[in-house]
Nucleic acid binder design. Structure first.
Lengths: 362, 362
DNA sequence: GGTTAGCACTCACCACCATAGAGTGCTAAC
DNA sequence: GTTAGCACTCTATGGTGGTGAGTGCTAACC
């Protein structure tokens, strides 16, 4: 039931928007319902508390605010936060001093390694006092750069796949018959030739053809050929799994920051937040959505479908090169979050990651 | 202040021990202070509640039990749990059906991969309804099995180290001058020759000698030699770091199980448990102690020094081959834990991991 | 028309008290 | 050494009244 639009063409006049903004900013710092008087005192609104009350009632009618109970102040709803967030697009970037410090820290760290993503997560956590999240950049369809086989013992070998972006997959292969390092090296060389530059599907078809040739009496010894097909099959399967996996890993840091927020003083809420963070499947889906969309997104409270996440918000930004490899960085905090600061910080870090990733494709 | 030892030579007579055991077992299931009457009703003690009360008072004087307040039942102290744990050495292994199921699950999983340790952690978590922990087996001094270099772009290469046990280390190397894959392959081959089978220290001295030879006019082109020394140095450093790291990774699962325990209903306690689990440094130290000692150990409440951990207990068991590679599996739960079950389960899983690891050295 | 002072009303919060019940410690009898 | 019995202690529960914050509404004001 929409009601009395007033004074301006939009559903919400300018003053109402300013007051909504004030309520949110006050609530973000105080964590307590905001009264009309507090708004008049702390924000130069130039009207009396009675007038503010009228506007607050209006904002509540539109669904942007609520009331815990009759004699309490106002609290923003998810819709209120949403409206607010839409109005701040860019956010507040960290001050230049901090930007330099962060750049410096990234310079200190092993390039493109796990440490990189841990650092991104912990930087975000530190700057926003929320939980920081970071996922490695992942290509859409992995391409093989190098195949290697190392004998662990005569029935067990370690298969090493280097992908185009430098990531590595390793797995153990049980050998059907005792095989020494020399034989393995030969097989690895064949596979390296065969697979270099290919995706899972391309390698799959090429192996298929090879198998046909072999059946009609190819050049190779049958035992060698069997091994090539065996290991090749494993490679294809591993790559397919990797491609299918939404997001390989979500590094997180600073969960304790979130848990210290007063809204999680009741232990069941605390538990739910924790469960939300553990639920990597869902987190992965959000992350994927952001990676696909290619723009910074904010998920607020109930917009994050699972029940555990209704009291938290996420700010996620993609980085990397669309079509080649994309990762996501972001923060997770209580819905009562300093959005401009969070958005600005996440954008800055994603920009930084962007620059850094470029070198991988230079 | 020790007091009135009675009836038997030891500080605690047989009946007192039985009652202590009963208190603990009752408390473990009920999570509430145990009254003298509950003990008489549920455990066939053959005496009246008044007699039990006398014994309880005695046990309290010895420090094995406490009182939350005058009119409450008894609760075991850490010392009480300790005495109890000392008396159950072996613990209760899982029933054969479950043992078979677990073995089967391990069979389904990628050999010696990350999944292995995740599975160990989640199996332990599931069986004990606590948090499960597992660390990969880590050698005392890593030995190189294989060195490889893959060009990412002309100024950036991926350095791949395969260690003797099949674990892999990967790092990025910035190249001082543009270098193509062919040159890299040559350098990698030289390093592979040079480093195979060596530890960090051994490789370090060998590189030192090489540098001397080169200074006095060696066979190689100086640019090649520089690169070999550069990359060689990185290898030595990486290996040293790896050796120094107490424990590479602690996989954990089922933290939510622990958080659901009623003793963590207050959110600050919950937070502390969570902080304890996050504090990998300390967990690492305990794990290392167990790896060194080579036997299953139980850490109870205050015995786990940091303040966050005073309300949790750990059961940790080593696996692997002493002197070659050792890892640790275990569980973390509230001090009010079903110790016999936890100990038995942890021992079973560590035994299983032992068997599995043996294949790596077969 | 919008704005504002004033006031009645609502409701969470707190302190206070009384009661009930659980479980002990002690004493005296067995 | 054991036990029945009882006084005692302390928590937990629920009800009560007062306080204060903050609203919503009305009527006057500009």
């Amino acid at each position: 039931m929409a009601r009395r639009p007033r004074r301006s063409s939009g559903p919400l006049d300018f003053r109402a928007q300013a007051i909504l903004r004030a309520v949110i900013e006050e609530y973000v710092t105080s964590a307590a319902p905001v009264s009309s008087q507090a708004l008049v005192e702390r924000y130069g609104l130039g009207v009396s508390s009675a007038t503010v009350r009228n506007v607050l009632a209006e904002l509540e009618a539109f669904g942007y605010l609520t009331h815990p109970h009759t004699s309490a102040g106002r609290v923003p709803t998810d819709a209120g936060y949403r409206l607010y967030v839409e109005s701040i697009a860019e956010g507040e970037s960290p001050p230049p001093v901090e930007q330099r410090m962060i750049r410096h820290q990234f310079g200190q760290v092993e390039y493109a390694s796990e440490h990189w993503f841990r650092l991104a997560a912990s930087t975000l956590a530190g700057l926003t006092r929320s939980a920081g999240l970071a996922t490695p950049a992942k290509p859409e369809a992995a391409r093989i750069r190098r195949v290697d086989l190392v004998a662990i013992n005569e029935r067990l070998a370690s298969l090493i796949l280097v992908l185009r972006e430098g990531t590595i997959k390793q797995l153990m292969v049980n050998l059907p018959a005792p095989t020494d390092q020399a034989d393995l090296a030969a097989i690895a060389a064949r596979l390296d030739d065969l697979a270099a530059g290919l995706t899972a599907d391309e390698l799959g078809t090429r192996l298929g053809r090879l198998a046909e040739d072999a059946a009609s009496g190819g050049a190779d010894e049958p035992r060698t050929m069997d091994l090539i097909l065996l290991v090749g099959g494993r490679i294809v399967r591993t790559l397919r799994e990797f491609d299918a996996a939404v997001i390989e890993d979500v590094f997180s840091d600073g969960l304790l920051n979130v848990m210290e927020a007063p809204e999680f003083a009741q232990s069941d809420k605390l538990r739910r937040v924790f469960a939300a963070l553990e639920n990597r499947a869902y987190l992965g889906r959000l992350v994927e959505a952001v990676a696909r969309a290619g723009v910074t997104q904010v998920f607020i409270g109930h917009e994050n479908l699972p029940a555990e996440m209704t009291e938290v918000s996420l700010v996620l930004a993609p980085y990397g090169q669309p079509g080649r490899a994309v990762g996501v960085v972001g923060v997770l905090g209580p819905t009562r979050m300093a959005y401009p600061h969070a958005i600005g910080t996440v954008r800055f870090v994603s920009g930084l990651m962007n620059e850094l990733v470029e070198h991988l494709y230079a």
